[in-house]
Nucleic acid binder design. Structure first.
Lengths: 111, 111
DNA sequence: CTTAATTTCTTCTCTATTGTTGAATTAATG
DNA sequence: CATTAATTCAACAATAGAGAAGAAATTAAG
């Protein structure tokens, strides 16, 4: 299949969540962040699956952190957005902006 | 699958194209409109498939027009966005707006 | 005329990618 | 060893996409 020129909504949300969380961007907080925005449960499994895909497409990278000194403190896998990922975010914004901007019915509202 | 609270990118683009095209919203112009925004080919097949999904979700409705007196003037199937569809578009915009608005790195840029 | 080619538009079929859930696994601490 | 925080896995459902086939109308050839 041809390469997409934009991000799907779910992947876009994940990229934005990773950017926003900065140093604390790992699986669990990322899915919490998504839940906050979507107003319903987001299973961690789906988040990890999407992160895998994003990593294989070079839009995020990951590294294992040290275990934290708390019970159940398994090492976390931290994610960060790559340059290519950031480019994609901007490109997606550009496309959506253009689409919305051209709609007479919706003019005046700014995203 | 659980009902999504947002639109996929492709379906969103189609809804916006349908709104924009108004009285001329049928398969072929819709896919042309998408091509314009995405800058590459969009197969009509995928557009119809998405329109089917949108209709079964009640976000668009369709009706058969009369054949036009021109070569190949087969009856067209016109689409229009339903109230629910319009609600979805607004909801999607709201969510994306919120996501982008909260990003420090991207502030200052307006979509 | 009537049959074939052409045009426009819709439908079908098949494949790939994305999204989801729920359970299983791993690795740490008490 | 029980508990907890985290990640990974496996199976599946929905969405996205390409391309070929089908249908209905007009135009043109004989």
């Amino acid at each position: 299949m041809t390469e997409r020129s934009y991000l799907g909504e779910f992947e876009l949300m994940i990229l934005l969540a990773v950017i926003q969380l900065g140093e604390e961007a790992y699986g669990v907080p990322i899915s919490r962040e998504l839940e906050k925005h979507r107003g319903r449960d987001v299973s961690v499994g789906s988040v990890y699956a999407a992160l895998e895909r994003l990593e294989s497409k070079g839009l995020v990278s990951s590294s294992l952190g040290d275990p934290t000194p708390e019970r159940g403190g398994k090492a976390k896998r931290y994610f960060r957005v790559t340059k290519a990922g950031l480019r994609q975010v901007h490109e997606t914004r550009r496309v959506l902006s253009k689409l919305w901007g051209e709609l007479p019915e919706l003019k005046g509202e700014r995203i």
